[in-house]
Simulated assay, not measured.
Amino acid sequence: MAKFLNTSATNYFLEELIKGARDRLILISPYLKLNDRIKELLEDKNRLKIDVRIVYGKVELQPEEISWLNKLDFVRTSFCKNLHAKCYLNEQMCIVTSLNLYEFSQINNNEMGILIERDDDAELFKDAYEEAQRIIRISDEVRMSLEKVVAQEPPKAEEASEEGEDEEQHSKLTTSKLAQKHGLKTAEMLDKLITAGYLELKGDKHFITEKGKEAGGEFRMSKRFGGYFLWPDEIYM
């Protein structure tokens, strides 16, 4: 039977859920700003090579958070437009709650939640798990270049001097803008570039190939957001 959770119980069982993951962990939260304890637990799951999926829905993701997430090879992060659900699952437990995976909320807010255990409520757990999988499927995975995040934020002056000037001076597009031109998601464009032989995937990181360079592709480094790729406007795929 599902259990009611108050604020402290939600935080407690969230940690237990992360610690107890043995194969798969799904964390769905519109706002994402992890406290040190949650980061430690996720780093441990990464060392154990457990598949972790994090889905968030607001673009206020800080560069420091992005940089930290990118160091974890077995943690994949996705952006889901119009996300409002907060749901956390491993193989045996699920929490549906008002609590965002956000440091301020965990400390300051009054929250409620429901704990569902697979052994006690198999059908309810299955429904929650399938909905979580649907949200993952409609989300846009944020990969090495973090271009999904960059594309949604208005460029500031210092950013324009990096990516903006590169595009203007070289008549080239970032992967995200190339994807927009073709009506694709960034992840889909990255897959096409891999299929064309312009990029290769090593672990969870993308690297430009010699073929990609010959086609006019370039790898650039932004001081604020890290690495990204530039491509000719009419690159052949």
Score class of each variant (00 low, 15 high):
118 R>W: 03
118 R>G: 10
119 D>A: 04
119 D>R: 07
120 D>A: 03
120 D>V: 00
121 D>K: 00
121 D>E: 14
123 E>Y: 12
124 L>F: 15
125 F>K: 08
126 K>M: 07
126 K>D: 10
128 A>D: 06
128 A>N: 06
129 Y>H: 09
129 Y>R: 13
131 E>I: 13
131 E>M: 06
131 E>R: 12
132 A>Q: 00
132 A>E: 02
133 Q>A: 11
133 Q>K: 03
133 Q>M: 04
134 R>W: 10
134 R>G: 00
134 R>Y: 11
135 I>A: 09
136 I>N: 02
136 I>W: 08
136 I>Y: 08
136 I>M: 04
137 R>P: 00
137 R>C: 02
138 I>V: 08
139 S>N: 03
139 S>P: 12
140 D>E: 13
141 E>R: 00
141 E>A: 01
142 V>I: 13
142 V>M: 07
143 R>W: 03
143 R>D: 10
143 R>H: 10
144 M>K: 10
145 S>T: 14
147 E>N: 04
147 E>I: 04
148 K>E: 10
148 K>G: 08
149 V>T: 04
150 V>G: 00
150 V>Y: 12
150 V>K: 10
152 Q>I: 03
152 Q>M: 09
153 E>P: 06
154 P>H: 02
154 P>K: 00
155 P>H: 00
155 P>M: 00
155 P>N: 09
156 K>V: 10
156 K>G: 09
156 K>C: 08
157 A>E: 15
158 E>R: 11
158 E>F: 15
158 E>L: 14
159 E>Q: 07
159 E>V: 08
159 E>C: 12
159 E>I: 07
160 A>P: 04
161 S>V: 10
161 S>H: 09
163 E>S: 02
163 E>C: 06
164 G>M: 12
164 G>E: 11
165 E>R: 12
165 E>N: 09
166 D>G: 15
166 D>F: 04
166 D>T: 09
167 E>C: 07
168 E>C: 10
168 E>Q: 11
169 Q>M: 06
170 H>F: 14
171 S>N: 14
171 S>H: 15
171 S>A: 11
172 K>S: 14
173 L>V: 09
173 L>G: 04
174 T>N: 09
174 T>Q: 01
175 T>N: 14
175 T>F: 03
175 T>L: 09
176 S>W: 11
176 S>N: 14
176 S>L: 13
176 S>C: 11
177 K>E: 14
177 K>A: 15
178 L>C: 04
178 L>P: 15
179 A>V: 05
179 A>Y: 05
179 A>K: 03
180 Q>C: 09
181 K>F: 01
182 H>L: 15
182 H>D: 14
183 G>N: 08
184 L>Y: 15
184 L>S: 07
184 L>K: 12
184 L>V: 13
185 K>T: 09
188 E>M: 10
188 E>I: 01
188 E>V: 01
188 E>Q: 05
189 M>C: 02
189 M>A: 02
190 L>H: 01
191 D>F: 07
191 D>E: 12
191 D>Q: 13
193 L>R: 05
194 I>A: 03
194 I>V: 12
195 T>H: 04
196 A>K: 00
197 G>C: 08
197 G>Y: 15
197 G>I: 11
197 G>V: 11
198 Y>N: 02
198 Y>I: 05
198 Y>T: 07
200 E>L: 06
201 L>V: 14
201 L>T: 07
202 K>P: 00
205 K>D: 03
206 H>F: 11
207 F>A: 06
208 I>S: 01
208 I>D: 01
208 I>K: 04
